[in-house]
């Protein structure tokens, strides 16, 4: 699956320009599902990126685990979920020194969550690269109850926490790693537009 092309949007909506090798600098590469293919492509373009790379992969049912571990990175770890991998990612960030690179590939939820962790650990944004692959489902914050709903694929959707029906905005918070969901029938309770699939 090639890198996703998103339609133009507002300036807070993140863009994912694709991964470019920064050479043999120590790095952490985190990917989920089809994001693995972006890492494989990156290594193909410049095998030197692997010299000091630590790969963390969340397959989410995708079949790329074996190919990733065969690349020969310094470390390659497969995790059952991103939540399960986060303590490991935090530990890697805590040990990192300036010059460290973060490569993120896969869904917006993964890219947003790991980038938010890295920034709060002190990594400047320009040390983070990202490439979107796979599902375009979004990670949404409910502006009302503050709960996060993962993998939102329709607009509007029901908040997994408070049950309000929310519309999907393009307004995005890097600190939260999430888009904003706002009550769709606030002014006219009960009148909810038909749910549609989110498009890129």
């Amino acid at each position: 699956m090639p890198a996703t092309k998103f339609s133009p949007s507002i300036t807070s909506r993140p863009v994912y320009p694709g991964l470019v090798s920064r050479g043999a600098a120590p790095s952490l590469m985190v990917a989920d599902a089809e994001g693995a293919e972006a890492l494989i492509d990156l290594v193909e373009r410049d095998p030197a990126v692997l010299d000091a790379a630590h790969i963390v992969y969340v397959p989410a049912g995708a079949p790329f685990g074996a190919r990733l571990s065969a690349l020969g990175a310094r470390l390659c770890h497969e995790a059952p979920s991103l939540s399960a991998a986060l303590p490991r990612i935090r530990a890697a960030l805590a040990e990192a020194r300036m010059g460290f690179q973060l490569y993120l590939a896969g869904t917006e939820g993964l890219i947003g969550r790991v980038a938010a962790e890295a920034v709060s650990a002190g990594l400047p944004l320009d040390a983070i690269q990202s490439e979107h692959r796979g599902s375009i489902a979004r990670r949404m914050q409910c502006v009302h109850c503050k709960g996060i709903t993962e993998d939102v694929a329709t607009d509007p959707f029901v908040c997994a926490h408070c049950g309000l029906t929310l519309f999907v905005r393009d307004h995005y918070s890097r600190r939260l790693g999430a888009f904003q969901g706002v009550c769709v029938d606030a002014e006219t309770p009960g009148i909810v537009p038909a749910s549609q699939e989110i498009r890129p």
């Binding site: 807070s12 914050q141 502006v143 503050k146 890097r174 600190r175 904003q180």
Partner: peptide, 16 residues
């Protein structure tokens, strides 16, 4: 929402 917009730069928080 401050809770949502905190940490954003000038262009990001005015994006909408």
């Amino acid at each position: 929402s401050l809770d949502f917009d905190i940490g954003m730069n000038f262009f990001e928080w005015h994006a909408p």
